[in-house]
C-alpha cells in the first residue's frame, strides 16, 4: 500500500482516499478546487440559513398563539445556530468570517433563492416548515456523509434539529387544512405559491448543472439534483393528499411503471431570474442583512475594546 501510494500523484492519492470513504480533515492536503468548491458550497449554505431567518422573522410578532410564537422563535434561533455551525466549518478551510459576510453583502455570494419569495400569510409558515425544510432535509441528510469532516459533522447537528422544523410546519398545515373553509383556502393558496419554488431548491437540471459530476466524484454530493427532486415529489404528493390539498401541477400523477410520480417542468426562466437577483424579495433580504451588519458594527467594536481593556487591567493586576 505504501509503495503504491508513493507512485500516485497527490491528486490521485487524494481521490483514492475519497473513494475509500476516508473523511478529509482541515489540515489534510486537498486540491485547491476541492477547497474552493467546499468554501463556496458551505458559505452559501450558511448564508441561506441566515437569510432564511428573515421570511419567518416576518411572522414572529403576528403568530396566532403564544405556543406558535414560542415555536417559531425557537426555529428561527435554530437557523441562526445552523448558520454559525456552517460558517465555522467553512472557516476550517481558511475562509474568513468577515470575507464571507462581505461576499454575501456585496451580492457576490449566493444563498438559496427560496428565501427571495415573500411570506404573505400564516399558512406560509406552514409551507416553509413542511415544504422548504422538507426539501432542505432531503439535501442535508446525504451531506451528513459528505467527504469533508467538519461539514459532515455540522450537518449531523443540523439534521437532528431540522426535523422539528418540518413537523411544526406540517402541524400548521394540518390545523389549517382541518379548519374553517377560509383556513383551508389559505393553506391551499400557500401551497400553490410555494410548490414550484420549492422544487427549484434542488438546483438546475442535471444536464445543466456542470459542477455536479465533479462534486459527486469528490463525494461532496451524494445524489444529483434531479434524483433529489424526484424523491421530494414522491414524498410530498401523498402528504398533500393526506392534508386534503392539491399540488398545483396537473402532471403530478403516480406512474406505476416507474414506481414514482411524474411531474411537470419547473419554470427555469423564473429560477434563473430569481438567482440573478430579480425575485420579489432579493433586494429587501440583502438590505436587511447589510443594515443589521452595519448597525451592529459599534457593538462588535465596543465588545472588542471592552475585552482589551479588561485584559490590560488583569495583566496590570498580575504585574503588581
Amino acid at each position: 500500500m505504501e509503495t503504491l501510494e508513493k507512485d500516485l500523484s497527490r491528486d490521485d492519492q487524494f481521490q483514492a482516499r475519497i473513494d475509500a470513504d476516508v473523511r478529509i480533515e482541515p489540515k489534510d492536503w486537498m486540491p485547491d478546487a476541492y477547497r474552493k468548491t467546499l468554501i463556496r458550497q458551505i458559505s452559501q449554505h450558511a448564508h441561506s440559513e441566515i437569510v432564511g431567518m428573515l421570511p419567518e422573522g416576518n411572522w414572529i410578532t403576528r403568530a396566532p398563539s403564544l405556543k406558535r410564537k414560542a415555536i417559531l422563535l425557537a426555529k428561527v434561533q435554530d437557523e441562526a445556530g445552523h448558520g454559525l455551525y456552517l460558517y465555522s466549518a467553512a472557516e476550517t478551510l481558511g475562509a474568513s468570517r468577515d470575507q464571507m459576510l462581505a461576499d454575501l453583502h456585496s451580492g457576490k455570494a449566493k444563498y438559496s433563492s427560496i428565501f427571495n419569495y415573500p411570506t404573505l400569510s400564516w399558512a406560509d409558515m406552514g409551507c416553509v416548515g413542511w415544504l422548504v425544510d422538507g426539501a432542505a432535509i432531503l439535501n442535508q441528510v446525504p451531506l451528513c456523509r459528505t467527504s469533508y469532516g467538519p461539514y459532515a459533522r455540522a450537518m449531523v447537528r443540523v439534521c437532528k434539529e431540522e426535523s422539528f422544523h418540518q413537523r411544526q410546519g406540517f402541524e400548521i398545515m394540518q390545523t389549517l387544512a382541518a379548519g374553517a373553509p377560509a383556513q383551508r383556502e389559505m393553506a391551499q393558496e400557500a401551497l400553490n405559491r410555494w410548490w414550484w419554488p420549492t422544487l427549484m431548491m434542488f438546483g438546475p437540471k442535471d444536464s445543466e448543472s456542470p459542477n455536479t459530476e465533479q462534486s459527486m466524484k469528490w463525494r461532496i454530493k451524494r445524489f444529483t439534483n434531479d434524483e433529489l427532486r424526484q424523491k421530494f415529489v414522491d414524498m410530498m404528493v401523498p402528504q398533500a393528499e393526506f392534508l386534503g390539498l392539491t399540488v398545483p401541477d396537473e402532471k403530478a400523477q403516480w406512474n406505476e411503471a416507474r414506481q414514482a410520480y411524474d411531474f411537470g417542468e419547473v419554470d427555469w426562466d423564473e429560477f434563473w431570474s430569481v438567482v440573478k437577483g430579480n425575485g420579489l424579495c432579493n433586494h429587501d433580504r440583502l438590505q436587511a442583512r447589510v443594515q443589521a451588519h452595519e448597525e451592529g458594527a459599534w457593538v462588535r467594536e465596543a465588545a472588542l475594546a471592552h475585552a482589551a481593556k479588561r485584559a490590560a487591567r488583569e495583566a496590570a493586576a498580575v504585574a503588581v
Binding site: Q77, G81, Y85, E161
Partner: peptide
C-alpha cells in the same frame, strides 16, 4: 470538541457556546 465560534472574550465565548451548541 463540537465546533468553533467568534467572541470578544472568554466569558462571551462560553455564553455564545451555550446558545449555539447546547440549545437542547
Amino acid at each position: 470538541h463540537v465546533g468553533s465560534l467568534h467572541a470578544a472574550d472568554a466569558t462571551m465565548a462560553v455564553q455564545n457556546a451555550r446558545d449555539v451548541y447546547t440549545r437542547r
